[in-house]
C-alpha cells in the first residue's frame, strides 16, 4: 500500500512540476519566472523525499537539505538582482 501511495504522490508532483515548467516558459515577466523556479525547487525536495521512501533509504536526506538551502539563497539572489541590478552591494 505504501509503495502505491508513494507512486501516486510522485505522479501528482510530476504534474505539478510540469505546470511549474509551463509557467517558467510562458512568463510573462521575470518575477513570474522566479516564482516558478522557487516552486520548482520545493516540489523537487518532495520528489527526492518520495524517492527515498520508495527505496527505503535515508541517504537522500542530505541532498534534500542542500536543495532547500541553495534554493532559498538563489531565490534571494534573483530578487536582489531585480531590485538593485546587482547581487553583492
Amino acid at each position: 500500500m505504501l509503495s502505491y501511495a508513494t507512486l501516486f504522490a510522485s505522479g501528482l508532483i510530476c504534474i505539478a512540476l510540469a505546470l511549474n515548467a509551463w509557467r517558467l516558459i510562458v512568463g510573462p515577466t521575470t518575477p513570474d519566472r522566479i516564482i516558478a523556479v522557487d516552486t520548482m525547487y520545493i516540489n523537487s525536495i518532495a520528489l527526492i523525499i518520495l524517492l527515498g521512501l520508495y527505496q527505503g533509504t535515508t541517504s537522500y536526506y542530505e541532498s534534500a537539505l542542500l536543495i532547500a538551502l541553495l534554493g532559498f539563497v538563489s531565490t534571494a539572489a534573483f530578487c536582489k538582482y531585480l531590485l538593485r541590478g546587482d547581487i553583492i552591494e
Binding site: 500500500m1 505504501l2 502505491y4 501511495a5 508513494t6 501516486f8 504522490a9 510522485s10 501528482l12 508532483i13 504534474i15 505539478a16 512540476l17 505546470l19 511549474n20 509551463w22 509557467r23 516564482i35 516558478a36 516552486t39 520545493i42 516540489n43 518532495a46 518520495l50 521512501l53
Partner: peptide, 24 residues
C-alpha cells in the same frame, strides 16, 4: 502506520498540486 503515512503523502502531494495549479 502505513495508512497514516500514505494518507499524509497523498494529502501533501494534493496540496502541492493545488499550489502549482494556482501558479499556472
Amino acid at each position: 502506520l502505513e495508512i497514516v503515512v500514505s494518507f499524509l503523502l497523498v494529502l501533501g502531494a494534493i496540496i502541492m498540486l493545488i499550489g502549482s495549479i494556482g501558479l499556472a
